[in-house]
Design a protein around this nucleic acid. Structure first.
Lengths: 209, 209, 209, 209
DNA sequence: GATGAATGAGGCTTCATTCAT
DNA sequence: TATGAATGAAGCCTCATTCAT
């Protein structure tokens, strides 16, 4: 469920990275994912992360350069995973692939709800420091949808003059919003129902003038 | 542009509400809107709010029960204003009304970009304390779209078995995402272009099977 | 004994500076002088300064921008006071004035021993951040001696080709070292004895070839 | 250039002193000299010392009892070296020997500027823990000058009633101050110029009444 | 009504030291 | 002999809040 975070900071620090250390990094990362996803970055103290991971506070700083790196690692991991899921679902004939991608997005959010909320809040945060995250999401996650639309446009399944950049963003956001609403208000509804409605809307769109 | 915040805290504090006090409250509220919208709640200190409002720090606490109340008031005001804009745009024949609502949403985000980001981040935040805000947005803002879809379903313009709850959420989220992407990545594009693409997608959806 | 530190940070912060606040600043400054003089900057925690001043830790930061400003204020005050003492003693006929200045330096160090140690340690610290202090001491304290030597050279009391910059530095350092040795090793000796030896050495120098 | 530090801690720790260990101790000591001289004790972390020595952090504690011992060893080594240089220069006829000692002091400071600053700061530090260092410098370094003056007094080259303790301290401090001023403010001046001025002053003093 | 000095809890980070390997 | 992961005390600083004026 929680694959290891990037195995080393990759910086000049020549730390051999033993098995023990990887274990600690892993526990810290999981604790951070859990807490930050639930409460946001600013409300999550390093103290609590350490406590949840069952290590001393100093250990956080031995394994990560600081709160920021922990957070950046978390976001990166989340985006990569989301993008990976979407791309994995985008194989096959474009039309079905699109529906499959929407389903993968729904599933990701259903499974990693807190992380999804965090990514969304982050993606739209303003300020230079966060531009990277936003860009990353757009390029990787929305990019997977855009590629699909482009190939459909090439095959004449959607109008060639449609702005696929805007359209992919719209499909992505539509699904995120619906998914989060679903989890927050009607978590008991089966995913199929939600997906069916999304597909209907997307189908209409595919046959648009 | 900045309507007064609720005129009194309504709490047991029996403070006579004079004209002077209303003026101070107003200035504090405006300062809070400006700063919190730009930098988020946690990054905005009471000190800075007071400074921007041109009053002493203690005055914040004389006029509001604390930072939290100031923030809650701000969110409330933002949601009300967004919902108001959407409802104002939803008059007239349903089909055109829908396009007009999407445009109003685009305009709101274009004009109050920072506030919009804040509302979105807030809307998707988890935890009991924030449920209210999310619910409020859903009931008021998305509700405006849902009513429109319901009336269209009644007139047969869209299939009667469509889940208008999910659909309105989808239309709302689609527009928010596109709008924020627009502001962040291509702010120089005219709103008409963005709106046109959204309308095309919505049209397709309206004629869906 | 401890005149007020510079009355206001002088920065853009428009704080009215009330009597109460001045009192607190004063107490903090005195506590800082006492502790930092005794133990050095790095070994003196803000916590202890606050404790000694009888205020809460936060009060330190309300009255000074941080540890650094407190420290800079202290150094500045010390240098000003030392330079002031030396200049005050440098009036009158140059020859006697010189002996009087050496005496003033002895007295300053005898009275503010800890502060003197701090200034000396500081004056010779390396690194850009401390250059200012060093320069300040040199310009103000050693400068007072250099001026004296210059006027003596003008009157033919010392050779006109003597490097008064180096010579004043030598006289200053000679006195500091002797004074600190005196305080550390033979504090019971009367100041007159120490002064007499210094004067003898200086006299020899005055009649140098 | 860097003689080995005392070969063993001498404490109860019965660690066999192998050649390998001596090599490690040596590297650690050199790293400590370099770093602490440049940045001071408090700003030099054990981490950086280990890094510079090319060993793991734990190795520092295997070879020294802690940071404090490393530091004490360093100071001791510095004082010994300074005193050695001064004594080596004090051979020959007293008058020339004195000038030669002053030159040796200038050269030591010119060559080991950072270490010299550290020693001076240390020498004047207050507090029981540091008394040893101060005493050491006084006995060894200033002692070398005092012996010279005593022999001159015995030969009638200086008044027999002069306080040679104070005078040697004065000569030492005069030279240190001038030397550090030289390095800090006019490092481009040749050592001869500085030395010449010092010699002139000392000569005057030698012929004092 | 308004002020601003004072507070103290709590956050982030550094670092000397220990210890199992 | 040497290592490096882990520790926790201690440091600096921010900031929402209180209260006497």
């Amino acid at each position: 469920m929680f694959p290891s975070p990037p195995e080393d900071t990759g910086c000049a620090s020549r730390k051999p990275v033993t098995a023990r250390r990887q274990g600690t990094r892993q526990r810290l990362f999981e604790a951070a994912v859990a807490l930050i996803s639930e409460q946001g970055v600013e409300s999550t103290s390093v103290d609590r992360i350490a406590e949840r991971a069952g290590v001393a506070k100093g250990t956080v700083y031995y394994n990560f350069s600081g709160k920021e790196e922990l957070y950046a690692t978390l976001i990166e991991w989340g985006v990569d995973r989301l993008a990976g899921d979407l791309r994995a679902a985008s194989a096959g004939p474009p039309r079905e692939a699109l529906f499959s991608v929407l389903r993968a997005e729904l599933e990701f959010i259903g499974t990693h709800e807190a992380l999804a909320r965090l990514l969304m809040a982050e993606a739209w945060r303003t300020g230079q420091a966060w531009y990277t995250t936003a860009r990353h999401i757009r390029d990787d996650a929305i990019g997977a949808i855009a590629e699909l639309l482009d190939s459909m446009a090439a095959e004449g399944q959607i109008p060639s003059d449609l702005d696929t950049g805007v359209a992919s963003s719209a499909l992505f956001g539509m699904t995120v919003t619906v998914a989060l609403d679903w989890r927050a208000l009607q978590p008991e509804r089966p995913i199929e129902e939600i997906h069916a409605t999304l597909v209907r809307m997307a189908e209409g769109f595919l046959t648009a003038p």
